[in-house]
Amino acid sequence: MIPYGRQEVIEDDIQAVVDVLRSDFLTQGPVVPRFEQAVAEKVGAAHGVATNSATSALHIACLALDLGPGDWLWTSPITFVASANCGLYCGARVDFVDIDPRTYNMSHEALADKLAVAEREGRLPKVVVPVHFAGQSCDMAAIHALSERYGFRIIEDASHAIGGRYHGEPVGCGRYSDITVFSFHPVKIITTGEGGMAVTNEPALAERMTRLRSHGITRDPAQMTHEPDGPWYYQQIELGFNYRMTEMQAALGISQLGRLDAFIARRRELVARYNRELDSLPVTRPWQDPDAESAWHLYVICLGEGAGPNDREEVFRSLWEAGIGVNVHYIPVHTQPQYQAMGFREGDYPVAEKYYATALSLPLYPALEEPDQEYVLSELRGVLQ
């Protein structure tokens, strides 16, 4: 089976993990801070806070921005459910902003229209979570300008986008947001097995997220309610969680990070070939904003004019039967039963729903060899023609 995505683990990665297993620390040692610093430096941010998943990073990012009951979080309907669930975890209410029909990212025009209505109705969001779908940055300058007008905070969900760029700067540099979150799941650009990280330029946010990922506990006397009882002393000063990353995960991450540029370059080679070979087929290829350089986590095509869910299902099944593990990213979040029970209905976000009806993710990962990619293209041609 040729999967839609997979990790690439080499002997250097394995040795990095083995070295940790032979060391004194398996958790809460020196390797996690090194990984945090390395990622922060790579993307041009001041601070990194590693977690056991990107979902955890989104949760503590929301908490660090004081999202809570009575507040609103807005995000894209075309994302994994975690981008919205992080608001529910905080007791906040969640809403969505329809997508741009070319990039499949949150539409800043739709966001502007929705904000104008929300201002009149007194329900402006406290936090907006733009999702850099497939690795391409949202139009963050436009979204940031709206945040300055309407007063919301921004968490970039860059789970797909480490190694991507926007306006010539790395995704995660923090120029247009408060916090950026990366994912290190095995199908992402680099992996730590499971894992995530929040990066920020604000020391207070980094400090609070660091505390929240470890039970809300501090050993810093300056944060305590009274003088420590002794050198062993700690205090839980707020309700936190066990969202820590292990030393083994961080060691794998450091090793993988060293090949990030090579991973991105290889993905771009594969994308260029897809683009050439699909030019004559009845599909819509991914459109790229000239102001952004995608990290190419996903290569998503949409079937041609007049195609619908039944046509997509036929293509999907045929390719799977041929041993090609295509996938669909994503089922619009507002159509999930959890969100339908909250009052959302099909038809609420028509652009997202139109996209979903014909979208198909083709295999894309650095270890995808040319013969396998040609096989994917050949089988796709056969099904479509």
Rank of each mutant, 00 (worst) to 15 (best):
V17D: 14
A118P: 05
P130Y: 05
F344I: 07
L26P: 03
A352V: 06
Q385T: 15
V333S: 13
H144Q: 11
P350E: 10
L278P: 05
V31L: 03
A352Q: 07
A352F: 04
I331Q: 14
V20C: 04
R312A: 07
E156R: 02
H167V: 13
G164K: 05
L63A: 13
E353I: 06
G306N: 10
R123Y: 06
K354G: 13
E238W: 02
P290Q: 06
Y89P: 01
F316L: 06
L88N: 10
E293Q: 12
C90V: 06
D24C: 00
D279A: 15
I143A: 09
V128T: 08
T192Y: 10
E277R: 10
A134C: 11
R34Y: 01
A322K: 06
I301T: 01
Q7M: 13
I78L: 15
A262R: 13
S137N: 09
M248T: 14
A292F: 02
Y365T: 04
I301L: 00
A198F: 07
W287Q: 13
G323R: 08
A292P: 01
R266K: 15
Y365S: 03
T246R: 11
G347F: 06
E247Y: 12
R123F: 11
H226G: 11
L380I: 01
R93L: 05
G29C: 08
I10P: 00
L380E: 01
T103M: 07
P77H: 09
S183W: 03
G347M: 08
H59L: 12
Q288S: 10
V128A: 11
I179K: 04
A40F: 09
E8I: 10
F35I: 12
S183G: 08
Q373Y: 00
W320K: 04
I162R: 06
A204Y: 03
E269W: 01
V128D: 07
T180M: 05
S159P: 05
E277D: 15
P371C: 04
Y339D: 11
W72I: 07
T284G: 05
W320V: 00
P282E: 09
A250F: 08
E346V: 15
G230E: 11
